[in-house]
Amino acid sequence: MPEGSASLQLAVGDRVVYPNQGVCRVSAIDVKEVAGQKLTFVTMRREEDGAVVMVPEGKVLAIGVRKVASAE
């Protein structure tokens, strides 16, 4: 991610809310080559049905992904 860009610090195992998809758990953060460029992807699995969603790390905030609020 370019320096100075806002990002959401995620780790494998974090629970997040993905708008219009529901609650997901981060299952992987991997670098993949797409069209000759190396990009970091956040892979999330929906808790409702296990569907897998992959989002480029740089788009996580723009999409509206946020961490699940704690009970505290």
Rank of each mutant, 00 (worst) to 15 (best):
D30P: 01
G22H: 04
V53T: 05
L8V: 09
K32Y: 15
V34M: 06
S70Q: 12
D49R: 01
D14E: 03
V31S: 06
Y18W: 12
V60W: 14
V60E: 05
E47Q: 03
M44G: 01
M54G: 03
D14F: 01
V26Q: 01
R45M: 14
V12R: 01
E72M: 10
F41W: 14
G50I: 02
P19V: 04
R46P: 01
R46F: 08
M54R: 10
R15Q: 06
K32G: 04
M44F: 15
E57P: 07
D14Q: 04
L8F: 09
G22V: 05
L39Y: 09
A6F: 10
T43H: 06
G36F: 02
K67T: 07
E47V: 06
I63F: 07
S5H: 12
L39R: 06
V16I: 13
A51W: 15
A62P: 09
T43E: 08
A35I: 03
Q9S: 10
G64T: 06
M1H: 14
I29Y: 02
K32L: 14
A28N: 08
Q37V: 13
A71M: 12
S27V: 15
A71H: 11
V12H: 00
M44Q: 00
R46C: 15
D49L: 02
T40P: 03
T43P: 00
V52S: 12
T40H: 05
Q9W: 07
V26P: 00
V17C: 00
R15W: 15
M44E: 00
V31L: 06
P2R: 07
T40Q: 05
V16A: 02
S5V: 12
M1D: 12
V16K: 01
D49T: 04
G4T: 12
R45V: 15
R25C: 00
G4R: 09
G58N: 15
E57T: 07
V26L: 01
V16D: 01
S27T: 15
V34Q: 05
D14P: 00
A11I: 09
E72W: 07
V23I: 14
E3C: 04
A28R: 10
A62R: 07
I29V: 06
A28K: 09
G4Q: 11
M54W: 06
E48M: 11
V23F: 14
V68Q: 06
A62G: 10
G4N: 13
Y18L: 14
A69Q: 11
M1T: 12
S7F: 11
K32E: 05
K67D: 05
E33H: 08
K32S: 06
P19G: 12
A28C: 00
G50H: 04
G36R: 02
M54F: 08
Q37A: 08
E33T: 10
P19D: 07
T43Q: 05
A11G: 05
P2Q: 12
